[in-house]
Design a protein around this nucleic acid. Structure first.
Lengths: 264, 264
DNA sequence: TACATTACTTTAGGCTGTAAGGAGTCGGCA
DNA sequence: TGCCGACTCCTTACAGCCTAAAGTAATGTA
């Protein structure tokens, strides 16, 4: 049940994460490798993007590559490590240069936007990190990017670190809502409005005292917060995006306050 | 593969979430129920608390109650619904009254602390909500609590909503790091320092150009950000707690700025 | 040509959630 | 009293999962 991640496994993982991505062709006996770690990771990412993390099985990845599941174990120690690789490689996609010419705030917003888009392209990322930190180049790359942009505020790095953490959490949290909304719509076939309508009908029936028990939530509903609005964007998804934008702005306001305080 | 959550299932779920928790003793033929939904949920929570979400199987829950896995299906439609119930019941644990006499900021900090503690007591909560919103009383309770406290800032409710979302995300994100740290230590038996030491040794060996590639991260390391410090608290866990506190403060600073802006 | 080495497959075992059908228990009615 | 029907709980079974172990085929070197 409990897997002890021994020294050997840790080394192997780190080698895969940090090692060269194009392996020099082996010289010596034995058949030529038909696959590669990178090909396997790419196939796995493709599956997770298209069908979600639940559909990601070793069999499925093998099939995608015209092999059996067990063939993958020649290249990758196990599924855990494969997922770690997927995660880290994908984080590495984040663009790295953000001009500071328009100020740190604009740059920070740009990184946040890219991070949001990255997570929305690969929503399965959100199901990965419940594991411990992967410590791969991709993860470092994201940290470096965020840290360097926010270090330009002039705040001490030890404080910038917390800003980065909070920003990352806000992005992850809000994009999660958006991703869920997409997935729910795709899986059930129900449009979001239909789903919501069915649910609120049920709520009204099974919890008639809702407004009395949760007055503030009810008031929020009364103020039309949950209306679909005119845009075509699915409502939960728009909701999530707005929450993301507002959260980031709030946080950056807090950073600005900290800068003023430090200067004053 | 794809499960269509039809109308019937939705109704059943909502009934379980919102229905009475002590069921009136049935009158009529048939053996008396030996279990109850609440007993099953409690057993499941116990297992998840003690051994993590991965150890939560229908068989395990049944065993805990002296039954087989299939016995549970008399009370609960399936594992998904059971997890939803666990999630919602646990959120319902959040204390609900936070005096505003010391100001909204103190109250907001208090809620955040309780929410943090709640998640740390039940770290599996973090693996649940990748599903769509449960819409149970516990979830509403948390929303109501946060909303009502932050509504006392005087900001319009539609803006308070984003504050709540951001706050929730910061709590969840930072507590995740703390929970992971605990779990890793428990599973590997390695103390955190040992684990970290082994990893940084590997990093130094496999990625010797780390400082050049990620200068800001390296600078952070140089400034002693990753030192253990004097306290007994495990370092990653302390790190997570500090990140939580700093993130919340930053956010509330942002809220304060918004209040000033609205007033001025 | 024989051998060592490697890629890949097949087989198998122990998990998982849950569908299906059967056994046993009880309340109410004839 | 006897039986029916409802109900709880069980056993069995199946499809899927990850992966250990062993077997097969292909390849380069001695």
């Amino acid at each position: 049940m409990v897997v002890f991640a021994g020294q050997g496994d840790a080394r192997r993982s780190m080698e895969l994460l940090w090692g060269p991505r194009v392996v020099a062709p082996r010289t010596g006996p034995g058949p030529k490798p038909g696959l590669s770690v990178e090909a396997i990771v790419a196939a796995a990412i493709e599956i997770a993007d298209a069908e979600g993390m639940a559909a990601l099985s070793m069999r499925a990845v093998g099939e995608q590559l015209g092999r059996t599941a067990m063939a993958l174990y020649t290249y990758v120690p196990g599924k855990t490590e494969l997922v770690d690789l997927m995660y880290d490689r994908t984080l590495g996609e984040l663009p790295s240069s953000y001009p500071l010419s328009s100020g740190w705030r604009a740059a920070a917003l740009a990184v946040a936007d890219e991070l949001w888009a990255l997570h929305l392209r690969h929503p399965w990322l959100l199901q990965v990190s419940p594991a411990r930190p992967v410590l791969g180049p991709g993860e470092f790359h994201v940290q470096e990017t965020l840290l360097s942009v926010l270090a330009s505020t002039g705040l001490p790095l030890t404080r910038v670190r917390w800003v980065v953490a909070a920003l990352f959490n806000i992005v992850r949290g809000s994009v999660q809502a958006a991703a869920e909304s997409r997935q729910a719509a795709a899986e059930t076939g129900l449009s979001e409005e239909d789903w919501w309508q069915a649910r609120s009908a049920l709520l009204g029936e099974l919890a008639p005292d809702l407004a009395a028990r949760f007055p503030t939530v009810a008031r929020l509903g009364d103020e039309g917060a949950f209306e679909a609005g005119a845009s075509d964007e699915p409502y939960l998804e728009r909701e999530a995006r707005l929450s993301f934008e507002a959260g980031v702005e709030l946080l950056l306001d807090g950073v600005e306050a900290a800068i003023v305080r430090a200067a004053g």
